[in-house]
């Protein structure tokens, strides 16, 4: 196992060569913000919150999808990064109908926490107020597209860990939606095993367990990582 040495926020860090900047930073106690990244799933570099500055290049790097390199000098926070992250969050809040006060995930929501972390006290962009559906045809779970941020964690959890590939994305741009099977009601899905991994993966209140009311939807993120470790590393301890 080769070791790379790099600098993260001025701190010398040693990391395994296969590690990403995000993982290396976290092991060094630096928590880079991210919404689409979750332990145990393939990083996709989609939310762009984990962008970091690298000395010697103007190009911002997605920490979740960039491998460490010897001698890298990484800055994970700067006024520019902070402002960009705040804008990304505001874009998300303006894009769909996120109403924390009446959301099942209130107080347990990664989007909400991220807004708090970045001091987002209001949204400077125009709210789009799209008309979106809620699918509660599944007997245990539901999906509220008003709260979906298209992080595709559900898609990846379902495909990579459960192997069912019930979830996917249809449409493009602002019209993109996560869908079940060939855009059928979730309850009609032939492939869904009702394993609930998507429910654990969802960062917001979009995918929820039915019967949970405001602020009741808590999740166990470690479940996904546990399953991956168990399968790949044969580690059965939590």
């Amino acid at each position: 196992m080769a070791i790379k040495t790099l600098t993260i926020d001025g701190q010398l860090v040693s990391a395994r060569e296969e590690d990403t900047i995000l993982v290396a930073a976290r092991e060094a106690g630096v928590n880079i913000p991210a919404l689409c990244y979750v332990d145990g799933l393939t990083p996709v570099g989609a939310c762009r919150l984990c962008l970091v500055e690298q000395q010697g290049t103007n190009r911002l790097q997605a920490a979740c999808a960039t491998k460490v390199q010897e001698g890298m000098e990484i800055v994970t926070n700067s006024p520019r990064l902070h402002e960009y992250r705040k804008m990304i969050l505001e874009l998300l809040f303006a894009e769909r109908n996120h109403i924390c006060a009446v959301c099942v995930a209130n107080n347990h929501c990664e989007l909400q926490d991220m807004a708090v972390r970045h001091g987002m006290d209001h949204v400077r962009f125009e709210y789009l107020y799209p008309q979106l559906s809620v699918d509660v045809s599944h007997e245990q779970f539901g999906i509220d597209h008003n709260r979906c941020i298209l992080c595709t964690r559900c898609v990846r959890a379902c495909h990579e860990i459960e192997g069912a590939h019930t979830w996917d994305v249809s449409g493009r741009g602002v019209r993109a939606r996560v869908i079940t099977d060939m855009n059928q009601p979730w309850g009609d899905s032939d492939t869904c095993t009702s394993c609930g991994k998507c429910v654990q993966a969802c960062p917001t209140g979009a995918i929820f367990r039915q019967g949970s009311t405001v602020a009741e939807m808590e999740r166990d993120r470690s479940m996904l990582q546990f399953l991956v470790n168990a399968r790949e590393k044969k580690q059965w301890n939590v």
């Binding site: 209001h122 107020y129 008309q131």
Partner: peptide, 20 residues
């Protein structure tokens, strides 16, 4: 000062907005 979520975000009051 925008005082509370309805003033700041529209919140529940704005839930009717998606309806044409």
């Amino acid at each position: 000062i925008s005082f509370g979520d309805c003033a700041v975000t529209g919140n529940v009051s704005a839930m009717r907005n998606p309806i044409p």
